[in-house]
């Protein structure tokens, strides 16, 4: 576990006069699940978007698989599957059609049975597959987008609040999915404010507060990160 895949070095992002990311540095290695944990407005989504190239860093550098976001964002996007914070797909298309459309945008070819397998894997009920997305619940949309991210078969996953809107059993299934992906060699970079969920799946957790990384927690051996300890640190920051 020492091949760096996602690297942030002294990343700074400012919007107007607001400093949103303040000297953020971290590394996510191949096969690792890294969770950036923080309260609302801490700068989590901004960090992700900086890696996608939709937010430009004011200073510092960010790279994926050795390619810089400022010069090579097309390459990075081809290697990354992104799950946005609030999943909005096309309401006039069905779940299947949405996935087909986005896959073809990425120039990824998957058969209908591949897509169905992915939808089964995220436990989206089969009778919804051919319904218009406008009629989906939030959790159903989330599952569709997760299935899309899986189907990209990208070596790196960027997940923004992946379990928001999922019911408890779906969260459990999702956590197992992430673990399986990382065991299969995928690198997962997720941002969340769900302490328990992060501790379940992450090998490492960075605590982000007002744009600064204020703490890092790591698994020791095969033991999960201690939820209690992270929760205390998190609560102290967000008191």
């Amino acid at each position: 576990m020492s091949e760096p895949v996602v690297v942030a070095e002294s990343l700074n992002v400012r919007f107007a006069d607001q400093c949103v990311l303040d000297d953020v540095s971290f590394t996510v290695n191949r096969g690792e699940v890294f969770a950036l944990l923080g309260g609302n407005g801490a700068g989590k989504s901004t960090t992700l978007k900086t890696f996608l190239g939709t937010v430009a860093p004011t200073s510092g550098s960010a790279s994926v698989l050795g390619h810089s976001v400022t010069s090579d964002s097309d390459f990075i996007r081809s290697k990354v599957a992104y799950l946005p914070e609030s999943v909005m797909l096309y309401g006039h298309l069905t779940g299947m059609e949405n996935i087909e459309y986005f896959l073809s945008l990425a120039d990824v070819k998957r058969s209908a049975s591949d897509i169905e397998a992915a939808l089964k894997r995220v436990a989206l009920q089969a009778d919804a597959w051919h319904k218009k997305l406008a009629d989906y619940s939030k959790g159903m949309r989330q599952k569709t987008a997760i299935a899309l991210a899986l189907l990209r078969s990208a070596p790196v996953l960027f997940l923004d609040e992946p379990t928001s809107g999922l019911d408890p059993s779906a969260i459990d299934e999702f956590n197992q999915l992430v673990t399986a992906l990382s065991e299969a060699g995928s690198t997962v970079f997720m941002v969340t404010h769900d302490v328990y969920g992060a501790c379940q799946v992450a090998h490492r957790i960075g605590l982000l507060d007002q744009g600064k990384i204020v703490g890092v927690f790591e698994r020791s051996g095969s033991e999960l990160i201690d939820t209690e300890q992270v929760h205390t640190a998190f609560a102290k920051r967000n008191a």
Binding site: T54, R77, S78, P84, V87, M88, F102, L105, D107, F158
Partner: peptide, 13 residues
């Protein structure tokens, strides 16, 4: 519509 980032992140070019 909230799709911009996903579109941009997904599109090859």
């Amino acid at each position: 519509a909230g799709r911009y980032d996903l579109l941009v992140a997904t599109a090859k070019k």
